[in-house]
């Protein structure tokens, strides 16, 4: 049983190592060709090479996610104790997302009051981005995806909550934030790479939780709960 659990991160680490080198080589040669370091290329050839380079970039991003997932599974990532404003991070991440605009799907952010949490800002930002990206990608009809960041008192502790989804599913999503075991999170979805599994593990490594809406449509939205930073700099949830 134990060996099965330890095999997955090792297999992932080995796969990352074995994949990285050929992708580096392919990307490197493509760049040489695009820069015409091996002779002139026609416009048509350039477009093909640039598309191939973009595809290599996608594989490279997936390899980076695999590497991150392997390190998280192996417990190799330490969460730094840096205090950050989660509301500002939510706004920052959302402002940079334009997926879905061509389909009339937009993000509507409500994150006014500062909420201090402790952790790894880039990784938390990537986790939030993955959740927003999934919501934007999976919404078929035009409309707004609401992103709401708020504070929550629960079991004598103080938490930051981010809920992401269509307006109609926000109340049940927020209600789930109070649960000791929120609804499960569907992280293994096609077309979204490994960003959701990585994001869930990052949030859990921060002492938080992520869940899907308790809705017949499990992909309709998601919620995140993170312990707030205490006034004395404690990393766990604090009583008010």
């Amino acid at each position: 049983m134990g060996s099965e659990h330890s095999m997955a991160p090792r297999a992932l680490s080995l796969a990352v190592h074995e994949l990285r080198t050929p992708v580096t080589v392919a990307t490197g040669y493509l760049r040489m060709l695009i820069r015409e370091q091996a002779g002139p290329v026609t416009d048509k050839q350039r477009k093909m090479l640039e598309e191939a380079e973009r595809s290599c970039g996608r594989i490279g991003a997936l390899i980076t996610e695999m590497s991150e997932l392997g390190r998280l599974e192996a417990g190799e990532l330490a969460v730094p104790g840096v205090t950050l404003d989660l509301a500002a991070l939510v706004s920052e991440v959302a402002s940079d997302m334009h997926e879905g605009e061509d389909r009339g799907v937009t993000l509507e952010v409500h994150a006014g009051e500062s909420i201090a949490v402790r952790g790894d800002r880039p990784r938390l930002g990537a986790a939030l981005k993955a959740l927003m990206h999934a919501a934007l990608r999976e919404r078929a009809e035009p409309g707004a995806i609401v992103v709401r960041c708020s504070a929550l008192e629960r079991n004598g502790g103080s938490w930051a909550v981010v809920i992401i989804g269509a307006e109609i599913i926000l109340p049940p999503l927020l209600e789930s934030a109070h649960a000791s075991a929120p609804p499960p999170f569907d992280e293994w979805r096609g077309g979204l790479g490994l960003a959701l599994p990585v994001g869930r593990r990052v949030i859990e490594a921060h002492g938080g939780a992520v869940w899907s809406a308790p809705d017949p449509r499990p992909r309709a939205g998601s919620g995140v709960r993170l312990p707030t930073a205490g006034p004395t700099g404690d990393s766990g949830p604090t009583a008010r």
């Binding site: 050929p22 080589v25 490197g28």
Partner: peptide, 15 residues
């Protein structure tokens, strides 16, 4: 030991 990578680096550096 990866001849593809070694060859790529050689080309990259030669350029």
């Amino acid at each position: 030991d990866d001849s593809g990578f070694a060859g790529y680096l050689r080309t990259f550096l030669a350029l």
